[in-house]
Simulated assay, not measured.
Amino acid sequence: MTSIRLENLHWEVLEEIAARDGMAVTQLITRLYDELVEARGAVGNFSSFLRVSALRYMALVAQNRIPADRTVPLRTLDPEAILDGLPAGWTHPIHPLHLPQ
């Protein structure tokens, strides 16, 4: 079993994300882990990934790309419309040595 250490704010955001789709936090974490393995084939620092996921969710809500209304399930939203026009680093990882000058 792996332990995940996150600050309380990150846990609260993950709980909100999970609740919007009727999941428990453990279900959300398992789903995110499985999707990360499928997309990248390996998992580095999963706690960091969860922190970034929570931060991006909060930023997308703040930008009105995701409705602030918590009764709107995330699974009903169009991910391409949400991500359209965002900086490349938001949708594709940028290697630290290749940051824009």
Rank of each mutant, 00 (worst) to 15 (best):
M1S: 15
M1Q: 12
S3R: 13
S3I: 10
I4L: 14
I4V: 15
I4K: 08
I4N: 05
R5M: 14
L6C: 06
E7D: 15
N8Y: 09
L9P: 10
L9N: 12
H10L: 05
V13P: 00
V13E: 01
L14H: 03
E15H: 12
E16Y: 03
I17T: 02
I17V: 11
A19E: 04
A19P: 01
R20L: 05
R20T: 04
R20K: 05
D21Y: 13
G22H: 07
M23V: 02
M23E: 03
A24H: 09
V25Q: 04
Q27T: 12
L28K: 01
T30R: 14
T30C: 13
R31N: 10
L32F: 03
Y33R: 07
D34G: 09
D34N: 12
E35P: 04
L36D: 05
V37C: 08
V37G: 04
V37M: 13
A39M: 05
A39G: 07
A39L: 07
R40I: 03
R40N: 10
R40A: 13
A42Y: 14
V43Y: 02
V43C: 09
V43D: 02
G44P: 02
G44V: 03
N45V: 07
S47R: 05
S47N: 06
S47F: 09
S47P: 10
S48Q: 04
S48C: 09
F49A: 06
F49T: 02
L50T: 00
L50H: 00
L50D: 00
R51T: 12
R51Q: 09
R51S: 07
V52Q: 07
A54I: 02
A54D: 01
L55N: 11
L55K: 09
R56Q: 06
R56D: 08
Y57E: 00
M58H: 04
M58Q: 10
M58G: 02
A59C: 07
A59G: 06
A59M: 11
A59N: 11
L60H: 04
V61L: 04
Q63D: 12
N64M: 08
N64L: 14
R65Y: 08
R65I: 03
I66V: 10
I66L: 09
I66P: 00
A68K: 13
R70E: 15
T71G: 13
T71D: 15
T71F: 05
V72C: 10
P73K: 03
L74P: 00
L74Y: 01
L74I: 05
L74N: 01
L74Q: 01
T76W: 10
T76L: 14
L77P: 01
D78P: 11
D78T: 10
P79Q: 05
P79C: 02
E80D: 14
A81S: 12
A81C: 13
I82R: 08
L83Q: 12
L83D: 06
L83G: 05
D84A: 15
G85P: 10
L86P: 00
P87R: 01
P87S: 02
A88W: 06
A88G: 06
A88V: 15
G89L: 07
G89R: 08
W90A: 04
T91N: 11
T91R: 11
H92A: 05
H92N: 09
P93K: 08
I94S: 15
I94T: 14
H95A: 14
H95M: 12
H95Q: 13
P96Y: 15
L97S: 15
H98T: 11
H98W: 08
L99D: 07
P100N: 03
Q101Y: 07
Q101A: 12
